[in-house]
């Protein structure tokens, strides 16, 4: 452990670890250009858990792939600033970028089977993940792999090291993926829906583990999910995405207490919540569907589904501060921010 200290990485501790300004991802499709990510801003502080939350097609996965440099070649990435700890990710040569991947930024995918090579043993893959980036002895890499497997709660780790990915259950595979991501002690882990494919009990265990490890290793995590329940429980800060934009960003506490974008409010209303929604009652669904991201969107992207929309919403609202670090991309953000009771159908009994 001692020879793997991250001291040399944290020279500039004051600035954020990752700064993203006006990130855009465009994909050519049959009907024109798909603007998957339409100019988003966010930053990740060292050691914090940022949740990117949104529904399918909102651009959250595209954002993570753009950060990792793993987008398909035909995708176009533009940004005013894409700075990872002093490194400009837009201009960095591909060789350095792939050194960065794995060593300082790691990724955990939804389906670990796609990220683990079925032809190699787990021990082999874990050690390789380290030896690819650092000059350490085979023995040292093996020891670290063993330590991490134990740390992520895998019993009989020695034996597991000699096994192949298909011999593990889904939950164990995801634990191995987490161990693999931690091999080089990265500064940033991007976890793309890492628990969506898992059973609820396993999900709770994995999330618990991830939160523990994050505190132990001081790793920043961008956690991508569609599940607001997960977000509420693990996030330090949250960025809500809709139609390729960040529409609201705040600390988890502030966001769930006083959501100030109609979309966030709608999302929170339409989840049945024990103790808040009356069983069997009608849920408050958000009508309509997400607009097409092919071509330009005029004005607020949510206005066709929003019950508050009026004339003003024909113009694109800016991301404006509601309070302190709480931003919302809505013309009515300030009115909405007043902490009105969210669930008017509170169970009274």
């Amino acid at each position: 452990m001692s020879n793997l200290s991250t001291a040399e990485h944290s020279a500039a501790t004051s600035s954020p670890l990752l700064t993203v300004k006006q990130l855009r991802v465009d994909l050519p499709v049959a009907k024109g250009t798909l603007h998957a990510v339409r100019g988003i801003d966010f930053h990740v502080e060292r050691g914090e858990m940022l949740c990117l939350v949104g529904e399918s097609g909102c651009g959250k996965s595209m954002t993570s792939l753009a950060l990792m440099g793993l987008l398909p070649r035909k995708a176009q990435v533009n940004a005013d600033c894409l700075n990872f700890d002093g490194v400009d990710l837009l201009t960095v040569p591909e060789r350095e970028r792939s050194n960065l991947r794995g060593a300082r930024m790691a990724m955990i995918f939804q389906e670990p089977m796609t990220a683990l090579n079925p032809a190699y043993t787990l021990g082999n893959q874990l050690s390789e993940a380290l030896r690819r980036h650092q000059r350490v002895s085979r023995q040292a890499a093996h020891d670290r792999a063993l330590y991490l497997l134990k740390r992520v709660g895998i019993s009989a780790a020695e034996e597991r090291m000699r096994q192949y990915p298909h011999q593990l259950s889904g939950g164990l595979r995801q634990r191995v993926m987490i161990a693999m991501a931690l091999m080089c002690e990265p500064d940033l882990i991007i976890a793309d829906e890492p628990t969506t494919a898992l059973d609820v009990t396993i999900q709770a265990q994995i999330l618990h583990l991830l939160r523990d490890l994050q505190q132990e290793f001081g790793t920043a995590i961008i956690f991508i999910t569609h599940d607001l329940g997960v977000v509420a429980r693990i996030a330090d800060r949250v960025a809500v995405m809709y139609a390729g934009e960040v529409i609201e960003t705040a600390s988890a506490q502030a966001l769930f207490k006083a959501p100030s974008h109609p979309y966030t409010q709608g999302l929170l209303r339409c989840i049945p919540t024990p103790g808040k929604t009356l069983p069997g009652s009608r849920l408050q669904a958000i009508p309509g569907v997400v607009p097409s991201l092919v071509g330009k969107i005029e004005g607020c992207a949510f206005c066709n589904r929003c019950d508050q929309a009026d004339e003003r919403c024909r113009t694109t609202p800016p991301l404006q501060a509601v309070a302190g670090e709480h931003f919302s991309r809505c013309h009515f953000a300030h009115q909405l921010a007043s902490p009105a009771p969210l669930n008017d159908q509170e169970v009274t009994s």
Partner: peptide, 8 residues
């Protein structure tokens, strides 16, 4: 293990 959207 059911996670309700309640922060904190």
């Amino acid at each position: 293990s059911a996670l309700t959207p309640e922060p904190g």
